[in-house]
């Protein structure tokens, strides 16, 4: 696999703008760079490990198991598994996307991976604890009760409305 320079166009422009900003000592450059640096460190702290885990998952987990539990013929329990996996997902959606695409490549059905992404967005446990303590338990409870069924319904709709060729685009970016 070759590294293409064009993949880094945004980073190159960003670096040039940062260099100009710093040489003019603009506060915006310092502010944006501080954010960049601290979020970069946050990412380095766990994203590479996530990809290693996905790599191991890919080699070790038998496709038949995923197909059986999360695939086309899986029952309602599959949503439950998707939710369990989602609620324990670390980070944010940016982790859920690669995980979902790896699951899809292993035979999980589209509605299940969309459900996984949706519930990973709204049901992650650490986040929910913050929500319940700062905004209120009943707020969190209603939000879960409303959004989980909506996520499942919309995932089924998405599975039906998205064409085969668009689904084929889901790459596991190997």
């Amino acid at each position: 696999m070759k590294t293409h320079l064009k993949d880094y166009w945004l980073f190159i422009i960003f670096s040039i703008l940062m260099a100009i900003g710093f040489s003019l000592d603009l506060s915006i450059a310092h502010g944006v760079f501080d954010n960049f640096y601290s979020f970069f460190l946050t990412m380095v702290k766990f994203v590479p490990a996530v990809f290693i885990l996905i790599g191991l998952f890919d080699v070790w987990v038998d496709k038949k198991i995923i197909e059986k539990h999360l695939g086309e013929d899986s029952g309602f329990l599959a949503y439950f598994w998707a939710m369990v996996l989602a609620s324990t997902t670390v980070g944010g959606l940016y982790v859920a996307f690669p995980v979902a695409s790896a699951l899809y490549k292993k035979g999980a059905s589209p509605r299940i991976i969309f459900s996984y992404i949706g519930t990973a967005a709204v049901c992650r446990i650490p986040m929910t604890l913050f929500e319940a303590s700062y905004v209120g338990v009943s707020f969190t409870a209603i939000r879960w009760l409303v959004s989980i069924p909506l996520v499942i319904i919309s995932s089924i709709i998405m599975e039906k409305m998205i064409a085969e060729k668009d689904l084929a685009n889901i790459s596991d970016a190997a």
């Binding site: 590294t3 998952f57 890919d58």
Partner: peptide
């Protein structure tokens, strides 16, 4: 396991 690790590293580079 080595195969899995290699795949993981490849994904890191690609992404």
């Amino acid at each position: 396991t080595i195969k899995g690790l290699k795949l993981g590293l490849k994904k890191i580079r690609k992404n």
